[in-house]
């Protein structure tokens, strides 16, 4: 146990300060949405992550948001276990046809007001997989999307900027 405490103490706090996105970046994310969120959520949002068919690369980087460097909870953003607890759906992947109904039901299960963030190139435009017999392509082909965060996969920093852009100026 002493070794554990020693490691905790010598590691210290590694959490990094983070620069909020500049205005031109915010425009990209949609100033309109930001205004709505400020009004409705007093600076805190609950996110339900939905993998609708990704290769799991995006999930790895979304996971990284909870590591001690980014520690996204300090900004009032936390991940929840059910869409019924969520304000925001963070959707990755091209939407596979086998996940289409599951995504629609998850969307319906999320209480209003709600927002959808499409994460990663596949979710934004279909990416490497596009539209086929097995894939519906972009998330916006299945449910309404409010914000997109491109990248293959987007880095944790890109994810942070996208999410912070939802919340405040």
């Amino acid at each position: 146990m002493l070794r554990l405490f020693k490691k905790v103490l010598t590691t210290g706090v590694v959490t990094e300060s983070f620069k909020p996105p500049k205005d031109d970046e915010l425009e990209q994310l949609g100033i309109e949405i930001k205004r709505h969120l400020d009004k409705n959520f007093s600076g805190s949002i609950a996110i339900r992550e939905v993998d609708a068919g990704s290769c799991n690369g995006c999930e790895l980087e979304i996971h990284a948001l909870n590591n001690p460097f980014y520690d996204i909870e300090r900004f009032g953003i936390h991940f929840v276990a059910s869409p019924r607890h969520a304000d925001v759906l963070l959707v990755t992947g091209p939407v596979s046809r086998h996940m289409q109904t599951a995504l629609l039901r998850t969307y319906e299960a999320t209480p209003n007001p709600k927002w959808v963030v499409a994460v990663g190139d596949c979710a934004v435009c279909g990416g490497e997989f596009g539209i086929s017999y097995a894939s519906c392509g972009a998330v916006s082909n299945v449910i309404p999307v409010d914000v997109v965060i491109p990248g293959c996969p987007p880095t944790p920093l890109a994810l942070m900027k996208g999410l912070l852009g939802l919340m405040k100026g």
Binding site: D51, M99, A102, F129, A134
Partner: peptide, 23 residues
Amino acid sequence: LGYVHKGIEKIAEGRSPESLARL
């Protein structure tokens, strides 16, 4: 399983070597 079936084998057909490496 099968929920994330994206048709990888089908969309690989006709690709160039570079494009297949990406897939």
